[in-house]
Design a protein around this nucleic acid. Sequence first.
DNA 1: TTGAAAGCGCTAACAT
DNA 2: ATGTTAGCGCTTTCAA
Lengths: 336, 336
Amino acid sequence: MVTLKHLAEQLNVSVSTVSKALKNSEEISPETIERVQALAKFLNYKPNRLAVSLKSSRTNTIGVIIPNILNHFFAKALFAIEQEASKHGYNIITCLSNEKQSKETDSLQLLSNGSVDGFIVSIAEETQINNNLDHLNAIIRQNIPLVLFDRVSDEINCDKVVIDDFGAANEATNHLVSEGRKNIILIGDIENLSVGKLRTNGYLDAIEKASGYSENPKVYTIKKKDKVEDVVTQLFDENPKVDAIISIDNVSGVAALQKALQLNYKVPEDLSIIGFSDENVLPFTYPKLSTISQHTIDIGKSSVSLLIDRLKNEDETDKMKTKTIKTNLVLRGTTK
Amino acid sequence: MVTLKHLAEQLNVSVSTVSKALKNSEEISPETIERVQALAKFLNYKPNRLAVSLKSSRTNTIGVIIPNILNHFFAKALFAIEQEASKHGYNIITCLSNEKQSKETDSLQLLSNGSVDGFIVSIAEETQINNNLDHLNAIIRQNIPLVLFDRVSDEINCDKVVIDDFGAANEATNHLVSEGRKNIILIGDIENLSVGKLRTNGYLDAIEKASGYSENPKVYTIKKKDKVEDVVTQLFDENPKVDAIISIDNVSGVAALQKALQLNYKVPEDLSIIGFSDENVLPFTYPKLSTISQHTIDIGKSSVSLLIDRLKNEDETDKMKTKTIKTNLVLRGTTK
DNA sequence: TTGAAAGCGCTAACAT
DNA sequence: ATGTTAGCGCTTTCAA
């Protein structure tokens, strides 16, 4: 690896001269600058990031902790985060908590010692269930900027990026009611999560307030040990007269649609289905799934923006911000 | 941030004593060790990784460059890489080339200055098309260990992890022939990639050698600008008598299946379909898609293993290894 | 215009 | 058993 020292020796000047020359410092004569830069280029000199960071206490690196990269929502969020970070000259160190609190804690600990300038985190399922947030609050106490997205907590005082989960599910349910549906069932695998609870409440609220709706609300939860397909099958077994399904995660809607078609329900004549996802998880189904569309790219980008703003004004004690990203109800082929 | 110096001052000992005490050095008295570790724990001391790395020239970080995180194959590979790396005490810095050569080059450059100990890379599409591999060979010239996976090149002398693309497609095609299929069509969106070419050749070879097969081989390519669905539709329009489809990417098989069902083909009676993917991209279709199954977790894990081996024996000039991960032909519902 | 020196936080060889 | 020193590669103040 070629260092300033190498260059300095080759050129018979001091290290500090080289350093300044590479930065086009006014202090250095044009000829020297020329010579230094020429050699640097020739030898493909690149400043050692570790040394620069150690010196400056800035790493230009963001630690990103994602619960589950196999979930398309998080893959897309990571995509957006990387793109936006990269645009601003930041690298990302990615850790995957795999929904485990221990992994989340370890990653946070490991990186909070000068490895990153700040964190973007979506909270692991286990952490949300236990509601043990010490490790996250420890980061805040160390004054390391933190942005939470999607899976957030009121008990952590930091910048956040969320969607209006309650409102989105509420709107979708209201749409189904306005279609004249009388037996609307909710299905999902995220009841443990903050977002899952909000979405479920949005559904319950809409059902409760629906005039002329007599059925009780029904919620089917897919647990870790369950197979999505089995729960879907059970739903249809137990509710042959179901006329609308709202899915609050990004796979069970597709599963419900496939099962419904297999059982010869007419979609959307007999049965409406609304999924919850960034875009159609399966763009190839027929009919195409209607969805509550969350703008995942915006979620990722906003997270980076909030973090970088905070990084720039670390002294300023701005109030922490919560940014809510709009959702859309996109009616495609599985609603009337 | 609490440093050795802080601890040393508080305890009235020298920095080096603290450093050694934290490592349970024999040189230090048990009492001192006790005192030091107690305070370190109390103050939640964590060694600064930058300083340790700068000193030791080892970062315990792997640079991972992925062409497209929205492709489930790469998401899963990243999942496996992170898991295996983490198991061995390595962090990963993730860069997404988004199939662009420029981004791939930038990331490689940026991280090759002491930020990472080695790289795991799958080559961007643009890079493979242009076949401009200077940036990768530059890494090798700097003696930075590099492992390529999936999308590799003969012109780069490094460790590699691949699957037997030719053999897998060959076997799948032979299966279709043995089913008695007479009009087997290949579809895919990766003709530009090394793996795409190999898979296509595997198909062509099988067709050529199939006794009693009279049709010419037919290949449908989905270009960047095309929509998968449109190409699938075109395939069925132009070949109403198609009786088997083999997909060499991980989405077009699903699209073909959905389209076939919509067109009222009987699957698998009239038409067999074989996809190419880790697992069923859409586990909810009916019938379930038969696939060439690539063991993506193994691909990711092996990449990490090869890299770590190389890192441990950087002096040893072992021959570079290419590891081939087995594939399986998994016959589910879309083959006879 | 250039260079010397200190220091970021840590380790390790070499005193004491 | 503990401390001093030098140095990883870089930046920056201060001196020449």
